[in-house]
Structures are given as C-alpha cells and as structure tokens.
Design a protein around this nucleic acid. Structure first.
Lengths: 135, 135
DNA sequence: ATATAAGCTTACGTAAAGGTCAAGATATTT
DNA sequence: AAATATCTTGACCTTTACGTAAGCTTATAT
C-alpha cells in the first residue's frame, strides 16, 4: 500500500533525525509500540513515513508525561482500527484530559505548598526569636 | 532537649497513622532522609513529635512529585543547619519554584497538545473522506 | 510455657525506560 | 583484501521507591 513510493529510512538515520537512540526505537518495537515493520533483506529495519509519523506521535505524547503503557493503549486501538481516527481520538482525548486533570491537581498542591512554606518560615522565625515549645 | 516530655511512638503505629508502611519509614532512614533517631533499649525505633513533623513534611513534598533525592538536598541543609530556617526556606522555595515551573510547562504542553489533537482529528477526517497522500 | 505480635537486619525482587556491551552479519570505502 | 560503519539479537546493568521473605530477638496474651 505505502510500500511503493514512500522513501524508507533505516534505524540509525531515523534515530539521529529525532534525537533519540536506536535502542529506544527497538525498545518501542519490543514492547509493541511500533508495529512490526518491513525489513530490508529480511533483517534491516526500514521505516516509511507512516512509521515515522507514528514514532513522532509517541515521542510527543511522551513529552507530555504520558507513560509508554498508556501510549500502548492507544497503539492497540491504532492496530485494531488503523483507519478509523474517529475511534482513536476520543480515547486519546480521554487520556489527555485525564492527564491534564492530574497535572492541574499537582499544580494546585504545589502552589498551596508554596504558601505553606512561606507561613512556615514566618512562624519559624518567630519561634526562633521567642525560643521554645511548639505543638 | 525534646527527649523528656514528647510522647514517643513506635514505627508500626506511626506508619499506620500516616497510611504508609514501616518499610517506607525504614527506607527513608536508610537513605538518610530521617536522621538517626533514638532507639528504645538500643533496638526499637521511637519517634518524637519533631521526627513525625519531619516525616509528614517529606510525605507532603512527595505528593508534589518531588523526588526523594531532591528532598534529600533539603534534609542535608536541615541537618547542617537545624536551627536556621532562614537558610533552609530559600532553598526549599527554590526547589518548589523549580517544580512549579516544570509543571507549568507540562500544563502548557498538554493544552497545546489537546489543541493539536483536535486539529489532527479534523485533518484525519478530511483525509479519510478524500482518500490519499499526506505530508 | 507457648503462641502471637511487633520489632530488627539482611538481602533479593520489581517496574519503567532505556544504556551498554558482546558477538556476528553486511555493506561501503580505501 | 582490510578497515570502517551500520545493522542485527541477546543479555545484563542502572535508577527510584519501595515490596517481600527469611531468620532472629523481645514483649505481651493466654
């Protein structure tokens, strides 16, 4: 299907162009994140534009703090339903929203903690100038 | 100093009251997060209110996504300079601000990604109804 | 007296995401 | 032909934050 005209790249070139190592790419294949692709002469991995898009997508999700396991869930849907993006995007958006919520929570905690710290410092300073008991 | 009137608790009770395991507490001691404390009869660990405050503090930082290693940096300052909270809070606030910045970045990435996804979906839908080339 | 509970240390196991090294096959350059 | 560069698989190493089991001591309950 896309085997005819799409230019194929090998693992080293691909890795370099994406700023990752070949090990990473092989690892993703190992855990089923990158579907089995064509091998040049039966041994050398080659990647077409679809493969590359998929890898870029994985990397992008990764930078968002989404774990490889979560990405795998999406990949499953990719594999089962390669052509129906209307089915994959809702799941994707669900995962993303989930993550956004988590991050929101962390943010809230962080800023609340920052407040605490400032108060803490004030109390401690007072405590030190007073000398003694707490709690 | 605080050995006289502060009520001492043992590791099991403390763990239960904080919803963690004894292993966790021993581990924190192992990596130097909880300074060596008093042992009842030379063997059984006992914790006073200071120790408990410290542990709670560690746990709070942890829920913020701050690694034990980072917390350790704070502990070092705690140990070196137990009494000067004016020295520790700046470092603490620095670490916190650092984290807040990271989280802010993730948030920005996430919402930007969410946008991308929506656009992606639109493009994919168009692509599918058109049938063919991309890139 | 004996069972149960809690504590102790030592030490190996685990998951995640690769890093690193070994040993071979191929391919290209000199 | 020999050296250099890439590719392959396989397998062990690393870090983080504990879990878990083994084997032993001490304290309380029956």
């Amino acid at each position: 299907m896309s085997t005819l005209e799409s230019k194929l790249v090998q693992i080293g070139e691909l890795a370099k162009s994406l700023g990752i190592t070949t090990r990473t790419i092989r690892y993703y294949e190992e855990i089923g994140l990158m579907g089995k692709n064509e091998r040049l002469g039966g041994s050398t991995r080659t990647y077409n534009t679809d493969d590359i898009l998929r890898l870029k997508f994985i990397l992008k999700l990764k930078t968002m703090g989404i774990s490889l396991k979560e990405i795998e869930q999406l990949s499953e849907i990719f594999d089962i339903n390669e052509k129906d993006f209307n089915k994959i995007t809702p799941k994707l958006i669900e995962i993303l929203d989930n993550h956004i919520a988590k991050v929101d929570e962390k943010m809230a905690n962080l800023s609340s903690l920052r407040k605490d710290i400032v108060e803490y410092r004030i109390r401690m300073t007072e405590f030190l100038s007073n000398n003694n008991q707490h709690e």
